[in-house]
Amino acid sequence: MHWQVQEAKQRFSEVLRAAEAGEAQIVTKHGEEVAVLIDIAEYRRLRGEQVGLMAYLRADPLDDFDLDAEIDRRREQPRDIDLAG
């Protein structure tokens, strides 16, 4: 999403919420891109900093994967195992 500086200032909470949701927010000044607001976990990842587990999970790491993809599984029955043994 692109925001003019004045609009970004007026609607900062909305800009911030979108950035937290993982959507980079680009700020323009006189039609030129001058800044981008991103989620802190993404910023740390880009900087090469280690991210804690909770921050990683909050950043929704599965968002990049196609979870509706078909999975190719074997169709044969599992083997019998004697557990009494």
Rank of each mutant, 00 (worst) to 15 (best):
V15C: 10
D72K: 06
P78R: 11
A69S: 06
Q77V: 00
I26N: 09
A84R: 03
Q10S: 15
P61N: 02
A8H: 05
D82I: 05
L67P: 00
G52V: 01
V51C: 04
L53T: 08
Y56R: 03
D60A: 10
S13K: 13
E76A: 05
L53V: 09
L46P: 01
D64W: 00
A55R: 06
V34Y: 08
L57T: 00
W3G: 05
I26M: 11
T28V: 12
A69G: 00
G48R: 03
G85D: 06
G52W: 01
E33P: 13
K9H: 12
Y43M: 13
R11W: 10
T28A: 14
I81G: 09
K9E: 13
Q25G: 04
I71Q: 07
A84D: 06
I38L: 14
L53D: 09
G52A: 06
G31F: 13
K9L: 15
V36P: 08
F12P: 03
D72T: 09
Y43D: 12
M54E: 13
L46S: 09
R47L: 11
Y43L: 13
P78Y: 12
Y43V: 08
F65A: 01
H30R: 14
Q77K: 05
H30W: 12
M1N: 10
D64F: 02
R73V: 13
G85H: 01
F12D: 09
R11F: 12
V51A: 04
A35S: 12
Q50S: 13
R79I: 12
G48Y: 00
E49V: 01
E33S: 14
Y56H: 07
M54C: 02
G22L: 01
A18W: 07
L57P: 02
R79D: 13
D68S: 01
D60Y: 01
Q10H: 11
E70H: 05
R11N: 15
A55S: 11
E42Y: 08
P78F: 11
V15S: 03
W3Q: 05
R47S: 10
L46T: 08
Y56D: 07
E32K: 13
D80I: 10
E14P: 05
D68A: 01
Q50F: 08
E20T: 08
R17M: 11
I71L: 10
L37Y: 08
D82S: 03
E76I: 00
D82W: 04
E32V: 10
G48M: 04
G48H: 02
G22C: 04
D63C: 02
E7R: 05
H2E: 15
R45C: 10
Q4N: 13
H2A: 14
G22I: 04
